[in-house]
Amino acid sequence: MSPDLFYLLVSLLFSIGLVGLLSRKNLFVIYMSIELMLSSVNLLLATLSKVLGDANGSVMALLIIAIIAAEAALFLAMIIHLYKEIRTIDADEFNQLSEAEQC
């Protein structure tokens, strides 16, 4: 078992998250893509912790898990707030702050 496979998995997961972030309009999918990218970084930290034989990586990953939880709470609260405003979860519809002509 070599860490190369883990590196490959981390790269793939991060990229899938980035693709989801770029190509979807559903706010929930965008949120979950961001979570996926954060989690892939977590997996990389755990892998490096094992590679270097140092438990500091695990501690860092633990703190990142706490940050993920905070981000989730804020993002979901924001989605609920936006949904209450104009009843949609389409990310393209939220252009109230734009200077251009609103459609």
Partner: peptide
């Protein structure tokens, strides 16, 4: 990432 150490340590 491959340029990093590619062996697990026996920790």
């Amino acid at each position: 990432l491959l340029t990093l150490n590619s062996n697990f340590s026996d920790m």
